[in-house]
Design a protein around this nucleic acid. Structure first.
Lengths: 242, 242
DNA sequence: CATTATAACTTGTATATACAAGATAGTAAA
DNA sequence: TTTACTATCTTGTATATACAAGTTATAATG
């Protein structure tokens, strides 16, 4: 049969990650040694090490030379925007009632600022999408997205109400690969006041997102504007020695 | 002679990273192929690949199968707290006049909350350090640090005025390896109002930091409280496909 | 008993080989 | 000219081997 066989080390990564989630390996315990895993999965040591390094990068384990792989507290799934999670994935996790309102959807000729941000030539157009995220009957997030039309030909209201990322990766078959994020706090604009339930708050948290494809081309600029009391950002950072 | 030779792949990583900074490889250009680098550094392909993967993880390059390694815009050194940079490193980069005021420094028996955060046994003590960061004559950041005394025997005002991280890594020889970060926005406390120049702002940005050693033991809990207009967080995130 | 060596574990680094898979440029055929 | 193929470049995955280096438990030694 020899089915799939694609990406052994990713399969092993996912399997071990699942097992950690399910509690098979509780926090502060140790994973089996690389040697044991090697025979468990009947593969080579380097393949096991690739899987373990992925687990370490993503905050599941900590490797200690001579000792082994220590399982960490994997509670890093609090409420994050961290790691490029989209609103839909997010809302699914927290389980509360949520809704997306598409306030604007149009093909525009961008102003100079957006043009610069997206690294565009003149004459190129962008999709502007303005969405309000409602959780528990409160409008707390305003998302402004700008997509380079060069990459996304057509967008509909239906697509915007679901996950645009999903659409791009599954329907268009393009791989989103990395992002630069910037978080600042500013005074609300007129638009913020009109579209969000600010409840008297005098600041909004702005998350600027620059999203790149696998081939390093910038394709999206997003601004996510949050009511401060409902904002939470969780991050896992590994220090690169050297 | 055979001097050092330790960590070939790290040396190669640093060398290429430096070359990118110096402009030898400008943004959007390509690095030499793995084969070329192999003979340039007279090493094996796997060693080159280790170095390149580090560069990719840290946002220097983007690898594309079949094409090569594309150099990215390495302007991710804006102003970040990202990636576990300490205030001293930070302030040095932006170049403005800065100062650290040590407001409190004491060995205390922690309350239950801190005890939990640091995962401590009863009877253990912690160093509490309260520092105000002044940039351009304005007191804009309040740092509250709690160090488990088990790891740090003694702290002085002088150490706190410089970089505690530096002290711990260089003097005590312990390796800080990763951190969990959490960012929220809250109303200022009495303490915030007393110690910071809030200029009428009705919110502060709180960055909670859980810092771990190489052996996965939690050793520090930090709260960094920022005046919102002076706060900026920059992050580079790679998406893990799968 | 306490200390020191040793052996047997663990993970880390470096190398070599083989083939898969994506990208590209040139060649041959229509 | 256009299309299709092919050779050859690139990076990706999987395997094997060897030794270095950190940790731990055991045995030998004083």
């Amino acid at each position: 049969m020899v089915m799939s066989m694609q990406n052994k080390y990713l399969q092993i990564y996912r399997e071990i990650a699942d097992q950690i989630h399910e509690g098979k390996y509780p926090a502060h315990s140790k994973l089996p040694s690389e040697h044991e895993l090697m025979s468990d999965f009947s593969t080579s040591r380097e393949t096991i090490r690739k899987a373990l390094n992925l687990l370490a990068q993503n905050g599941f384990i900590q490797k200690v030379q001579g000792k082994g792989s220590i399982v960490l507290d994997a509670r890093k799934f609090d409420f994050p925007i961290s790691g490029l999670v989209s609103f839909k994935e997010l809302a699914g996790k927290i389980g509360e009632k949520h809704q997306t309102h598409v306030e604007e959807l149009e093909l525009i000729h961008p102003n100079q600022e957006i043009q610069q941000q997206l690294n565009m030539k003149k004459n190129q157009n962008v999709w502007k999408v303005l969405r309000v995220r409602e959780i528990d009957q409160e409008r707390i997030i305003l998302d402004k997205d700008y997509f380079n039309q060069m990459y996304v030909e057509h967008l509909t209201k239906e697509i915007c109400e679901n996950s645009i990322y999903e659409y791009i990766e599954n329907e268009l078959g393009m791989q989103i690969s990395f992002a630069k994020k910037e978080i600042i706090v500013v005074e609300p604009t007129e638009e913020d006041r009109r579209l969000l339930h600010l409840n008297g708050f005098s600041n909004v948290v702005v998350v600027k997102n620059y999203v790149y494809f696998d081939d390093a081309s910038l394709f999206q600029y997003t601004e996510s504007r949050h009511r401060p009391d409902k904002f939470k950002f969780v991050d896992f950072a590994r220090r690169t020695h050297g």
